[in-house]
Amino acid sequence: MRMSMILRVAVAIVGGYAVAALAGITLSWCLPWSRAENVTAGMLAGLLLWPAMVMMGFALRTLLHVCAAITGIAALLAALALLGGWRP
């Protein structure tokens, strides 16, 4: 396996997990229902997002595109969470 492929695997899995984790945090702070419901929705969304992000990590043309996409989505989610009142 070439180095770029190893990097792509790492970015897709680790970055995908980070997006899933951030989605959980964002939804737990930004949804309008009770805390337990928001957290549950966030976990379910995270479970869907992780495999989706891994697929995206292999579907985009270059590693740079993957990094940009994952960073962008993560930044968007983090911004929403901060707006919702979350403080890390």
């Binding site: 899933a20 984790a21 959980g24 945090i25 737990s28 928001n38 379910l44 995270g46």
Partner: peptide, 19 residues
């Protein structure tokens, strides 16, 4: 997918920790 749901709190506890 439902198998992952049964273990979701272990895999993605971040929402719980944040909320």
């Amino acid at each position: 997918f439902s198998g992952a749901v049964t273990l979701a709190t272990l895999l993605l506890p971040w929402g719980i920790i944040a909320a």
